[in-house]
Amino acid sequence: MPDTPDPATEAFVAHRNLLFTVAYEMLGSAADAEDVLQETWLRWAGVDLGEVRDQRAYLVRITTRQALLRLRTLGRRKESYVGPWLPEPLLTTPDVAQDVELAESVSMAMLLVLETLSPTERAVFVLREVFGLDYDEIAEAVDKTQAAVRQIAHRARAHVAARRPREAISPAESRDAFTAFQRAVQTGDLQVLLDVLAPDVVLLTDGGGIKQAALAPIVGAADVAAVLGRVPASRSLVPAQVNGCPALVIRIDGELDTVLAVRVEGGLVTGLYAVRNPEKLSHMEQEIILSR
């Protein structure tokens, strides 16, 4: 006779992708998001389900509280990080790119904007703006009053609006500019590269002190093109969807070397995010399902 499904396990599995997405948007680290899910499961397994009115909201609340604890630890870790800190890239499924709001919320550009919020502001912004939770649910998750949460949400929205990427990503526009960019990098055509890079394009490189990387942002089409022109001839460039946006996966002698996420606005490449730290590349071997 087959085992009776455990209701707690069934509920957790049903919402796992959502919970991972919440944790990842709050932390910018897949490894830490997975740890948060482990902690969430341990607490969820001890809950009396008969007392739970809304399982999804309850699970999101546990995940948020665990992510907030982890976020404060991460903040101390980032203070001693060597060079620019970039989020851990995720190889995402095609449906993420089709959900424009979700794709923008997990993009490298937006995750870096979220880094400028306080932990509580980040939690409130993510839960309200990305996942559409009611203020009463958010208040329970962050242990604040509804009035306080409304104020925090207003402050966080204004903060993000002042710093967020200039315009929403158009998938078709992104595709065309990205294709031209990929071809230019592959062929080493400097003029085409300069044509597709915005004059004020910014390249951030994250080596984590393990791999060679610039310790400060590289700004301007000429300087960025010069760096891209030094990519070794023995490399292979494979297009991929990373964090819901186009990216190049760079391998040298068959080994994963760099994930280069690309931000396109107005038909030009405005942002490049090169993650070289090998400790951040473990989630590039299989697609991650994100949901909201």
Rank of each mutant, 00 (worst) to 15 (best):
V100R: 14
R166G: 15
L19V: 09
V259N: 02
T179H: 11
I252E: 10
P94L: 08
L59H: 08
D223R: 10
G266A: 07
V60D: 06
T270M: 05
V82E: 08
L69V: 10
E167Q: 12
A247S: 07
I250D: 00
W85M: 02
F12M: 11
D257W: 12
S236R: 13
L69N: 12
G271I: 08
D32K: 11
A11Q: 14
V130W: 02
L111T: 03
R53G: 05
P7C: 02
G266N: 10
V22M: 07
V227Y: 06
R76V: 11
L228V: 06
Y273R: 05
A233P: 01
P119I: 00
Y58I: 00
F125L: 09
L69I: 09
V201H: 02
L228R: 10
V185F: 11
A177T: 09
I218Y: 03
T120N: 06
R164M: 14
D189M: 01
S80F: 13
T93A: 14
L69H: 10
E39W: 09
L127T: 07
L18Y: 05
V227G: 04
T116C: 05
L281Y: 09
S29A: 10
R56T: 02
T73V: 13
L268K: 15
R292C: 04
V262C: 11
H154G: 06
L112M: 15
R155Q: 15
A31Q: 13
P119Y: 02
L86G: 02
I288P: 00
G50V: 06
S29M: 07
E279Y: 10
V100K: 11
E101A: 14
T73A: 13
K78C: 02
P94T: 12
E34N: 10
A153C: 12
I288K: 04
D253N: 13
L193R: 00
